[in-house]
Design a protein around this nucleic acid. Structure first.
Lengths: 206, 206
DNA sequence: TGCAATATCATCCCGTTGGGTGATTTACAG
DNA sequence: CTGTAAATCACCCAACGGGATGATATTGCA
């Protein structure tokens, strides 16, 4: 398994941070930084480009872990878990709102941390499915492949354009658009725009 | 928050199972069944249609929890977490292969269980169907809210159905469908099916 | 060079869709 | 009880979309 993942630790207690670090290194993770407060965390996120973040909720006197989580959600696309002992109802409400990929309660055991990280990383790759729809994706699902022009037309159709609009965008006659559309329906085995859009949606979300 | 989710517990120790059950009920989850072995679990999965499963890995002398997890992956689309004390390296390898949505180590605390379930449910909806679109979501984006009937029609439109098909599905005249469609376009500020589908797609992916 | 695939455009036809207008019944709240 | 909102249906018409057929460049590969 590839464990070259860079992990950032955010934990205000130096001793616990070291403990986590050693634990991670013993299971072959690469700890790219340890932060003790919000400011350090913001800096480290920008500079060492971590693949994963472990957050303590309580940093000093406040729940800055949640602030960091929101910051990660805003600016980055990095999975994170909470590793904390803080667990009152009201804080948990907030925590859930930040959509963490996991939650580990202290005191933790190595296996606990390991499995949580693995699960979080796995789920994240599944979540971050780019779902960019390209001609390759379409052609992977049909026998008679689309031509490039047909795909361009299909792209416009998928984005809700009418035949007239498509004709204007491509500087071609509406008749030509209809000819292409017919071929597209034939190849995708659909019979209307709406049906075609739904078909593509299904392929994208697989 | 809606906690009508039906949760299935698979745990061979009756006392621990009861403990989990009470814990879940105290945080307003609906426990739809308790299973003590693989066979009971297979039956319960089929019969009580749970929304979520909590799995102990060790059932009796073997790791049937993993077998159940594989079965869930094969036949169903239900998120599950492990709640177990078993944590040797070799078992953890297997565990990761079953792609659980979480992993809680015994002894557990209520908050731990709660947050793990919430996170698992959230991630699962994002994983499985990034496009669960409800009337609330639509109405959150428009000024003049859709009625329930209008939403039902919109749902069918979003799924590529023609007016004729919608009329048949709802046992109403095609004229009525058109009337509803007109109101929908007015409210969503669109002028065609394709445009409407795209509009919804935008709202869903935000 | 010549065939095949592709892109282009046209015309006809008809069914569907979108827009306008109006009417009836049911249900619910003031 | 009365008015308003919702659901139901009808008719008309213009525009658009989808299916069929056929024709003419252009391109690229055999």
């Amino acid at each position: 398994m590839a464990k070259n993942k860079k992990i950032l630790i955010v934990e205000d207690e130096p001793l616990i941070a070291e403990d986590i670090k050693e634990c991670l290194q013993s299971i072959n993770y690469n700890v790219c930084g340890i932060c003790h407060n919000k400011e350090q965390a913001f800096e480290a996120l920008e500079e060492c480009n971590p693949d994963f973040v472990i957050l303590d909720i309580n940093l000093g006197n406040n729940q800055d872990g949640i602030v960091i989580a929101e910051h990660i959600n805003d600016k980055y696309d990095i999975p994170f878990i909470y590793l904390t002992s803080y667990s009152t109802k009201s804080v948990l409400e907030q925590v859930r709102g930040t959509h963490p990929m996991g939650y580990v309660v202290k005191p933790f055991v190595e296996a606990d941390l390991f499995s949580s990280i693995e699960i979080a990383l796995f789920n994240h790759t599944k979540l971050v499915r780019p779902s960019v729809f390209g001609i390759e994706l379409i052609n992977a699902n049909i026998v008679d492949a689309l031509t490039n022009k047909e795909f361009e037309i299909l792209d416009d159709m998928y984005n809700g354009k009418s035949n007239t609009e498509i004709a204007e965008n491509h500087f071609i006659s509406i008749n030509t658009v209809k000819t292409h559309a017919k071929k597209i329906y034939e190849k995708l085995d659909t019979h209307s725009r709406a049906e075609t859009i739904v078909r593509i949606r299904e392929w994208l979300s697989q």
